[in-house]
Amino acid sequence: MAQQKKHITKNQHFVPQFFQRFFSYENNGKTIGMFNTKLNIFKNQVPISSQLSSVYLYDLDGNLENWLSQHEADSAPIFREMWEKEKLPTTQSKDHSKMLHFMVVLDLRNPIHFKILNNLEQKLPNTKSKISEGNVSTDDMVSKLKEYQTYQGKLKSLQSAQLLVSDLLDLKYKLIKNTTSNPFIISDNPIVLYNQFLEKRNWTIGSQRDFGLKGLQLFLPLNDSYMLAVYDPNIYKLGTKKQQVVAIDDKNSIDQLNLLQFLNSESTVNFSHRASKHYINTLYERSKKYKKANDPSINVYKMNVPKEYYNLTAQMIEMGASDLNIKLSVQKLNFISKSSTIKLKSLNDQYRKNVKFKGYTYIVYKFTPIDEKS
């Protein structure tokens, strides 16, 4: 008996179609509004099947794509209930973990991550050393970055995303209910990681968007009226203590949250029928005043080495990407008073307690014998 041929999806979505349907035109579940920021093209309706996807983005054999499809099927009911019933998962429940897992995977599966890795791979060989003449020895790092971009590397990365969930269970989460006439929008990179705390401190050591950082905030629009906000409760408060749903009637706050979608995107924002061409163009023009996120960078710092290692010098090579910094100010989202007493003196001070994994900044320590320096 002939073996049945395995179906492999060619057009692989990096923002799930179920999620895009939450923003569909007049809730038809088939089309969505689109604005291309690079071509300056606005369309009221385009097929969801054609949006936020790429040919064989994840694999050629269907294994990772099938894993993602099952992951999406498990997650979809949780997110639909948020905006349909204003219902959030119970803290520390299975659905709480599933919610966080979906958010981590949504972040890590985005093509922007693969682009960052590729750009870092290209930049590394030309990176100048701070402790010796010439370039940093980067062969081992380049090979590692290449590995992360393979189909097998993507599979390994996304399937291990569950490990990051434990680092996020200490964060609080609420719904923001948009009661203004300006609708929430999404983009080709819809989950926004922000950090008002480190932004206010002018913190420049590493990324401000690592999953384990103090002051972390995650904003994920759910449809044109609701947004999921996940945040560090030791730094911020959102609404009152008892509120799970926080209504915002300030248009400027909504516009700022939408502005983050433009700045976090690669080339596309999407929206429901409630977003006019004028509104989208206004946000687009406003976004030009700020630096976009996800611009790859490599920094090299000379380090102090203990005297007993007299024959060594050391450098720290930091690989990361630009942060979102717009001096965000959102109605009913405020710093708690004790956050002002937190001291930041070192790299470790920026992380929340018991954090195991860091999400965005790759830090490599290089030790070089003095007699090998040029």
Rank of each mutant, 00 (worst) to 15 (best):
Leu168Lys: 04
Ser97Leu: 05
Val136Thr: 09
Asn118His: 15
Ser276Tyr: 12
Lys242Ser: 10
Met319Asn: 05
Asn63Ala: 13
Asp232Thr: 03
Glu26Ser: 11
Phe271Ile: 06
Ala314His: 02
Lys146Gln: 12
Ile336Gly: 11
Phe184Met: 08
Asn119Ser: 12
Ile32Gln: 04
Lys6His: 09
Leu171Lys: 12
Tyr351Asp: 07
Lys358Thr: 12
Asp224Ile: 02
Leu169Asp: 00
Leu88Met: 06
Ser329Tyr: 05
Thr37Tyr: 00
Leu175Val: 03
Asn118Glu: 15
Pro89Lys: 03
Asp167Phe: 09
Glu372Leu: 15
Pro306Ala: 01
Asp61Cys: 06
Lys343Pro: 02
Val55Leu: 04
Ile116Trp: 13
Val355Gly: 01
Phe79Cys: 05
Leu57Ile: 07
Met141His: 02
Val46Ile: 12
Leu216Asn: 00
Gly239Arg: 06
Glu199Ala: 13
Asn325Gly: 00
Lys177Asp: 00
Glu199Tyr: 10
Val104Gly: 01
Leu158Lys: 00
Asn36Gly: 10
Ser143Ala: 08
Thr37Asn: 02
Thr361Lys: 01
Ile342Met: 14
Ile336Ala: 07
Ile176Gly: 00
Ser54Ile: 00
Glu72Asp: 15
Lys174Met: 08
Asn258Pro: 07
Thr31Leu: 08
Val364Asn: 14
Gln159Cys: 08
Val136Met: 12
Gly29Glu: 06
Ser24Cys: 04
Met227Ile: 06
Lys332Gln: 07
Leu333Asn: 05
Asn118Cys: 10
Phe22Asp: 07
Ser253Phe: 13
His96Val: 03
Tyr151Glu: 15
Lys332Ala: 07
Ser340Thr: 06
Leu88Gly: 00
Tyr362Trp: 15
Leu259Arg: 06
Ser24Trp: 10
Lys146Phe: 09
Gln149Met: 14
Asn40Glu: 15
Pro111Ala: 02
Leu198Gly: 00
Met99Pro: 03
Gln331Ser: 15
Tyr231Lys: 04
Asn63Gln: 13
Gln261Cys: 06
Tyr148Lys: 09
Lys327Cys: 05
Leu228Met: 11
Met82Ala: 11
Ile326Val: 14
Asn119Gly: 02
Tyr310Met: 00
Gln217Leu: 14
Leu257Met: 14
Phe18Gly: 06
Arg80Cys: 02
Phe42Cys: 03
His96Gln: 12
